[in-house]
Design a protein around this nucleic acid. Structure first.
Lengths: 1332, 263
DNA sequence: ATATTTTCTACCGACAATATCAGTATTTAGAGC
DNA sequence: CCACTAAATACTGATATAAGTAATAGAAAATAT
């Protein structure tokens, strides 16, 4: 039951809207009496004093819930109050488990909230009714509706009618009377028939047919389907993308129930296409072949093949007019589609791809829905195999062990779920202390856990626990908090996919599919289905609360910990005998970090070393693998990417405000969707030849390039005797810590590499796609983790475009340039780069021929794996009589030279800066780092000449590398200290330990100064952005925020975050706010988490520090997405890693042109001016807290006014009072009523006094500085007569005098934008090194 | 010991000459915060040479005293007593320290009290400590165990009479000899005290996989029902012994959370 | 209101300290009608 | 059935945990005076 306290609290809350009403009613006749009235009211409200029902009513969260972010946007920061969100969530799960009584009581609680919180209650009721109706008799249904109606709480709508009608139809009862309002025209049929999810296809069709309704009433997306019978000849071409028709599609329903159908028989006789079939077991076999995670994937992929409808295969062969054989009865043998594809003549390829796509649609569906079961099957299979063989290897096989766990754990999980279902029937009195505690916990999570399938739950728990091994800085284990969350997140995800699937099944239930053999109809059918899924997914709005999630996670993990055992051996210290035994695989423990206690789940060393010895490190989240077909195109903020899960376009950072904004602008984001879809539609495949080399090396277990050695165990240096000096002991501890860190990171990188390889292995020969989404600044990322083109050199080296293009002469040149770039020759003119490769062409050929034997050259490259891939491609080309005819799949990169600075330079119009980052045309590429180093050197020379010792020592040691990181991070707002550390790292080797740091400090200052000089305009902009961010995050909205708690003591609360829109109209909300976490009790321990639905004060510091880089990134993201669309329009393949754009070698020229044009287009507008305008609008009416000199004119006026107010009020006036008065003034001014406006205009407040003041004069640095200067002088004087011994003490004495400042609220006025330099972005058109 | 040049000069040139005749102070240009500077003090320069004395009694002619504001430092001193290093390598050197009241409360806590935490077990295991003097401060007095107050019978002074000292308590630490494995001892006590109000049958499981199952066979039932905060140092020693006899105890007892700080 | 102490120090991808105790708020049980 | 009290339970906030403060600088936020 919902706690009635919570309810009462909500009921007691006076909503802000109500308050506004109260103030609006204050009608007065004259300005002065108005003022008096307001004063009276203020007295009455008596801010800061404890008037009952006023101050104490609201807790902080309540005050800030439900607030508009700004009036300009009309977007709620937080869509609904926490309680409502919780109730919705609960309502959903109760309905899913058919707990209607409880659902009704939730509805009863929700109803009053719907009025306050302004949501539509009938929607919730309909949700309930829709679940209730199928299980109830017509009379019951009618009774329920009548009941609610008569209570006055419910006003039904068309959807309610739809539900009732559908229920009656399904039960073959007459429903016509509910149609009456629609037939009579009092209500719109469209609104009734819009509820296709209620009716389902069949009933929708029936209702139309039985009543002879105009087809126009049916939503357009479904009309075709309804009318299949009526006009089969319909010539309307249905544009058809790769829309997934799900496993519930009538043609394939039989395949959905099992994954263990018999293996497909060999189709055709001969295997002529030998190269086309890759036997993965015999091919470069990974030592980690046992990696069960991968087996899961492979098994999933493989298990689909037997399911393959033979019709599809026939179609395959039909289309190709040639018989191909892909499948043998060897389950480990998998078709290498890529080889088949390449082996086909060009004119056959399209047909092949079409067939492959259709085939993959099925497989993708299964991949998203069946992978959990597949894992379970795989375990069982392996277990039985071993048992059959009578093998002793049972304990060696992880999969077999997992099956053992599964068998033990599943019944316990089932029992737990059973208990959850019965949780309300338990007699509490019969329970003892501990059982009672358990019971009351269970009551909280029961509604959720009971929805789940015990088998899936078990598998997911096991997979997640293994996946989390070695995370969170724990070498053999994981943090409890992370574990519990990741388990329950995975569960929620799985549950949602299941829901989508079920809804979809329901939708097509009873639908007569006999007509679907017609391919055209089938297409219509799958179109409708896809549309339907979009609708369903958009509707899902309720999430499991965080605290519930951790509770569920911990319960399940506890169960697993209870059953999961491993065989262990150890030496008995007394007898020195080897002892064998069985021990839990996991145990709970604690570790401390700086006195902070951290809960840890340790994985038993036996299991852990088995995991690492077998090179098996875990499982893959099977929900987010690369996709076999084009991702579902993005059409709204939560519609896109995978087909059976809800994916958000933005990776939200637990910010309800971000969510609100993205929702609100969801339908204005076509440009963003376009770009993102281009990225998602780029088809990839695995570079098999690179993969072979990699896996060969991997198997040695040795260190190679960026793959660390496979440590067997951590060897520690000898422990010094305990009586050693503490310094010795400490040193030892530090050494041990360093070793442990190295061990842990090595292990995790090896782990990560293992994942990459294993996923690559599973996708060998496949055509696959990476669905993308955005971070909150709009930068795009592939959703599937581990293996993607954004990863390390290793993963990038493994990826090829699926599509091949003839390389041509230009392309060949670009390929060479690309190779040179990968070798780090990326600062030379293009011809030199090409020459570098030509000079080494023999090495290229040799390396390609046998990369293992001839590794000395390519491994020296900057990015060796990508270099190897390129070398192979280039060598292939060179083998041809005409290399330009080579079909290349190799992505070639064009990287922005310091992309952030490029945008800054364009914004600031820095001529010199623009030249240095290659915006301005130039013969040879410029290198900022070199240039800055040069500038720094010049400065040092000068200083050295003037006898500066530091400069003298440094001047000959300034290499590009020394300044590179600092120049790069300058864009991100690195501070002096940070930069000093960076430079210190570089200088460490050059200078002695004690000199190095001092010199670094000195050098940092010089570097900063040089940067500032070079990018003057850019830095002005950077500063301007930072100032704006600071002012905004330190401003208040008077109409809502914070005046209540501005009592005499309290500070105003700052709730405004920096919000802007990118040139593509994507709203960006900086999420930085105070983090408030709570301890949540779980089975294992308490877990410290924050509630994502709460809003807290902004973190002004972070808002300010992060805004400049975030703004720039939002621009480069826009640029990338625009370029993506543009390239795609020209038919180019396109991929991107932020500021590195990839395409085929032959298309580089065209791509370059595109991205130059889009850059120019982007900067055609004065983006800074645009931003300023946007800010001015958005933060109109906000107030900022400033300090002005006491003695200024306004200062005096304000003081006088305060005195007056104080005497009128009979108590000291507070800032809160002043805000209140100003707010009234604003209300009057914006009332639209002439009288009131006049009154408002005549009103004087402390704020209005400042309205026409030039705040800059009042708060200017000059004014403050002059004050400080005079103080400094005084200080110096006082210091003069101190003797040298007392100097230190004296320095610390506080300065007694300080400037008298007055804190006041003033209208928020952002500074003017800095002047722009002379660089014209159109010059970019002729700069060939812009990206290179 | 002072290694800041300016202050050293001040002490040397101005302060020391003002000291009364025959004082026993010696000024060294050394950093008292650096362990190794003590080595130089006692080995190299022979400024200080108390000589080694056996550990069956307190060192007879070496006393360390000071006001230690920093609690971490006090804990370090305690661990020096445990390790018998630093100045404790000369024998059981008595330390007479003024430490913050709050630290004193923690360190002096007895078993079965709310304040009982690991550091008080350290104290109990590696030295005999006595409360000598403490200010008449209601808050800290209340926190000291009554038993402790009546046993040690400290001087309770009026905080106003020593304005600065009102926050500090004077404690005498008399190190004890022992032959415990410091790492294992630390591990056992640390893990158990992490949940110090959970009965041993449960909390023992934090020591390793199914640790409680092993302990159950080795320790008396009444001990199993106790909670860690009620255990005496002797009981901890016993548990340590059992732990060390456990064939399946974890290999590494000093694992730490490593935060991957990237370049 | 002013002075001293503490904190923090590069963006994003990628979030995470916990046990215990005291004191208060809220709920429940129980006795009585 | 209700109003009531006492006991039980739930919730909140504070505090300890580990254990050198220090390679540097300077502003802003938090806390103390």
């Amino acid at each position: 039951m919902l706690s009635t306290v919570a309810r009462k609290r909500i009921l007691n809350r006076r909503s802000p809207a109500v308050l506004v009403q109260a103030f609006k009613r204050t009608n007065v006749s004259s300005a002065s009496s108005l003022q008096n009235n307001l004063i009276e009211e203020l007295k009455h409200i008596s801010l800061g004093s404890k008037t009952p029902g006023r101050i104490n009513v609201k807790s902080d969260e309540e005050v800030h819930a439900n607030k508009w972010s700004t009036p300009y946007d009309g977007v709620f920061r937080q869509s609904h109050s926490k309680e409502v969100m919780r109730l919705w969530s609960l309502l959903d799960v109760c309905l899913d488990s058919s707990q209607f009584e409880r659902a009704e009581s939730i509805l009863t609680t929700l109803h009053p909230l719907s009025i306050e919180d302004n949501f539509s209650f009938v929607d919730d009721f309909n949700k309930y009714l829709n679940k209730f109706a199928p299980l109830a008799s017509p009379t019951e249904i009618e009774a329920v509706v009548a009941n609610w109606r008569s209570s006055g709480k419910l006003q039904t709508n068309a959807r309610t009618d739809a539900i009732i009608i559908n229920a009656l139809m399904t039960k073959n009862n007459p429903y016509e009377k509910y149609l009456l309002p629609y037939l009579s025209g009092r209500a719109d049929f469209r609104s009734l028939l819009r509820n296709v999810d209620v009716f389902g296809l069949q009933n929708l069709k029936l209702i139309v047919e039985q009543n002879n309704l105009d087809i126009k009433f049916v939503p357009a997306a479904y009309r075709d389907l309804i009318t299949i019978d009526n006009n089969v000849e319909d010539t309307n071409e249905v544009t058809h993308e790769t829309n997934i028709s799900s496993s519930s599609s009538p043609t394939t329903t039989s395949t959905t129930t099992t994954t263990t159908s018999p293996l497909l028989e060999p189709l055709m006789g001969s295997a002529d296409y030998e190269p086309a079939v890759l036997n993965k077991q015999n091919a470069e076999e990974l030592k980690s072949v046992d990696t069960f995670g991968m087996k899961v994937i492979r098994h999933t992929l493989l298990s689909l093949e037997p399911d393959l409808n033979s019709k599809l295969l026939e179609k395959f062969n039909e289309k190709l007019e040639e018989k191909l054989e892909f499948f043998t009865n060897d389950s480990e043998t998998q078709a290498n589609f890529f080889e088949v594809y390449k082996s086909l003549p060009l004119d056959k390829r399209d047909l092949f791809e079409e067939a492959l796509n259709e085939f993959n649609v099925e497989r993708q569906t299964a991949l998203e829905n069946k992978s959990i079961e597949a894992a379970q099957e795989k375990w069982k299979h392996e277990y039985e195999e071993i048992k059959k063989r009578g093998d002793l290897g049972m304990s060696k096989s992880l999969n077999a062990r997992l099956w053992g766990w599964f068998e033990q754990m599943m019944p316990l999980v089932r029992d737990e779920i059973e208990r959850c279902k019965n949780v309300d029937d338990i007699q509490i009195k019969t329970l003892k202390n501990e059982a009672f505690a358990q019971h009351s916990e269970r009551k909280k999570y029961a509604p959720y856990l009971r929805l789940l399938d015990p088998k899936k739950v078990t598998v997911i728990t096991i997979l997640e626990m293994l996946k989390n091994n070695s995370t969170g800085g724990i070498s053999e284990g994981m943090r409890t908090a992370r574990a519990v969350l990741s388990v329950s997140k995975a569960l929620e995800l799985e549950f949602r996919s299941e829901q989508i699937l079920n809804t979809e099944k329901n939708f097509v239930k009873n639908f007569d599919n006999s007509k679907l053999s017609n391919p055209k109809n089938l297409k219509k059918y799958s179109m409708s289905l896809s549309n339907f899924k979009n609708d369903v997914i958009s509707d899902m709005k309720v999430y499991w609360p965080q605290d519930i999630k951790v509770k569920i996670g911990s319960v399940l993990i506890s169960i697993l910990m209870h059953v999961a055992k491993v065989e262990v051996s150890g030496v008995d210290p007394s007898t020195k005998q080897l002892v064998r035994g069985e021990a839990p695989a996991f145990y709970h423990s604690f570790q401390y970090h700086n006195g902070a206690k951290i809960g840890i789940l340790k994985i038993h060393k036996v299991l852990s070393s088995q995991l690492s010895a077998d090179k098996l490190v875990g499982a893959v989240q099977p929900q987010s693998l690369p996709m076999l077909i084009q991702p579902r195109p993005w059409t709204s903020w939560n519609n896109g990417a995978y087909y059976y899960s809800q994916n958000q376009i933005i990776r939200l950072r637990d910010s309800p405000e971000q969510l609100a904004y993205i929702k609100a602008s969801s339908d204005k984001l076509d440009k963003v969707y376009d770009g993102l879809n281009v990225l998602g539609n780029t088809a990839w495949t695995v570079n098999e030849r690179v993969f072979k080399v990699m896996s060969k090396i991997w198997n040695t277990g040795d260190e190679f390039l960026d793959i660390p050695k496979a440590h067997e165990s951590l060897e520690l240096p000898e422990v010094p005797p305990r009586s050693s000096d503490p310094s010795v002991l400490n040193e030892w501890k530090i050494k041990v810590k360093a070793l442990q860190d190295k061990y842990a990171t090595d292990r995790s990188t090896r782990c990560d590499a293992n994942y990459k390889l294993e996923i690559a292995r599973a996708f060998l020969g496949e055509k696959f796609y990476f669905p993308h989404n955005l971070d909150f600044r709009g930068r795009a990322y592939p959703i599937s983790p581990n293996f993607n083109h954004m990863g390390s050199d290793l993963s990038r080296g493994l990826l090829l475009f699926w599509k091949g293009k003839e390389i041509g002469e230009e392309g060949l040149r670009w390929l060479k340039i690309h190779l040179a770039n990968l070798f780090g020759i990326d600062k030379a003119p293009l011809n030199e780069r090409e020459a570098f490769v030509n000079d080494n062409i023999e090495l290229v050929k040799r390396a390609a021929e046998d990369p293992m034997a001839n590794q000395e050259w390519w491994t020296k490259a900057d990015k060796p794996w990508q270099a190897l891939a390129t070398i192979i491609d280039l060598a292939d080309a060179l083998k041809l009589p005409d290399p330009t005819k080579h079909i290349s799949h190799q992505p070639v990169h064009q990287d922005g030279t310091c992309n952030g600075l490029q945008h800054y330079a364009a914004l600031g119009g820095d001529v010199e800066g623009a030249t240095q980052v290659n915006l301005a045309p130039s013969d040879k590429p410029q290198d900022v780092y070199t240039h800055v180093a040069k500038l720094v050197r010049a400065k040092l020379e000068e200083a050295a000449a003037n006898g500066d010792e530091n400069a003298r020592m440094l001047k000959d040691n300034i290499k590009r590398k020394v300044v590179k990181q600092t120049v790069m991070t300058n864009v991100y707002g690195v501070t002096q200290v940070g930069a000093t550390n960076q430079i210190h790292k570089q200088l460490q080797n050059v200078f002695s330990e004690d000199q190095s740091y001092k010199l670094s400090v000195y050098l940092t200052k010089v570097v900063f100064a040089s940067m500032r000089e070079l990018f003057e305009g850019a830095h002005l902009i950077q500063d301007w952005l930072a100032i704006c961010a600071k002012m905004i995050s330190k401003s208040v909205r008077i109409d809502i925020d914070s005046y209540e708690e501005m009592g005499p003591k309290k500070k105003p609360s700052f709730m405004a975050s920096v919000i802007w829109t990118t040139p593509l109209d994507l709203p960006i909300v900086q999420p930085y706010r105070a983090i408030v976490k709570k301890q949540i009790q779980t089975n294992l321990q308490t877990v410290f988490i924050q509630d994502p639905y709460e809003l807290h004060q902004v973190d002004a510091r972070k808002q300010m520090a992060a805004f400049p880089p975030n703004f720039i990134h939002s621009l480069d993201a826009s640029h990338m997405l625009l370029s993506a669309s543009s390239c795609s329009k020209k038919g180019l393949e396109f991929a991107a890693v932020h500021d590195s754009y990839w395409t085929h070698a032959c298309d580089v020229g065209e791509m370059s042109e595109s991205l130059r044009e889009t850059f120019i287009e982007l900067h055609q507008v004065d983006l800074i001016a645009r931003l300023k305008d946007e800010f001015d609008e958005r933060y109109k009416g906000f107030l900022q807290l400033i300090e002005i000199p006491y003695k200024s004119e306004v200062g005096k006026k304000i003081l006088a006014m305060r005195k007056e107010l104080t005497s009128q009020l009979g108590r000291p006036v507070t800032l809160g009072d002043e805000v209140y008065l100003e707010r009234q003034r604003q209300l009057l001014l914006n009332s639209g009523d002439e009288n009131k406006i006049a009154k408002g205009e005549s009103m004087v407040t402390t704020v209005s006094l400042l309205e026409n003041e030039d705040l800059k004069d009042l708060t200017s640095a000059q004014a403050m500085k002059s004050m400080k200067n005079s103080l400094a002088e005084e200080l110096e004087e006082s210091l003069e007569n101190t003797n040298e011994y007392e100097e230190e003490e004296e320095l610390k004495k506080p300065v007694k005098k300080s400037a008298q400042k007055l804190k006041v609220f003033a209208p928020l006025r952002l500074p003017d934008i800095p002047p722009k330099g002379d660089f014209d972005v159109n010059d970019l058109r002729n700069s060939k090194y812009f990206f290179s | 010991m002072e290694d800041r040049k300016a202050y050293y000069n001040y002490l040397h040139d101005i302060y020391f000459p003002q000291l009364p005749e025959g004082h026993n102070f010696d000024l060294q240009l050394k950093n008292p915060y650096t362990w190794t500077d003590y080595i130089h003090l006692t080995d190299g320069t022979r400024v200080l040479d108390p000589g080694y004395q056996t550990r069956d009694k307190l060192h007879s002619n070496f006393l360390f005293t000071g006001l230690i504001h920093n609690e971490a430092l006090v804990m370090q001193f305690l661990s020096c007593m445990a390790n018998q290093n630093w100045l404790q390598r000369f024998g059981n050197v008595k330390m007479l320290l003024w430490i913050p009241n709050s630290s004193a409360v923690k360190i002096m806590a007895r078993p079965d009290t709310r304040e009982r935490a690991k550091c008080s077990v350290v104290r109990e295991t590696f030295c005999d400590a006595k409360l000598i003097a403490t200010p008449d401060d209601e808050k800290s007095l209340k926190s000291f165990n009554n038993n402790l107050l009546s046993n040690d019978d400290p001087i309770i002074f009026n905080p106003k009479s020593f304005s600065k000292a009102s926050k500090y308590t004077l404690i005498e630490f008399n190190p004890k000899d022992h032959d415990l494995d410091a790492f294992a001892w630390d591990y056992v006590v640390k893990q158990l005290m992490a949940s110090r109000n959970t009965p041993l049958d449960k909390s023992l499981n934090h020591l390793g996989p199914a640790a409680a199952d092993f302990f159950v066979t080795k320790i008396p039932l009444n001990l199993l029902g106790k909670v860690p905060k009620n255990l005496t140092s002797e009981e901890f020693k016993f548990l340590l012994e059992v732990f060390q006899s456990w064939p399946f105890k974890p290999d590494s007892l000093l694992e730490t959370v490593s935060f991957g700080k990237e370049m």
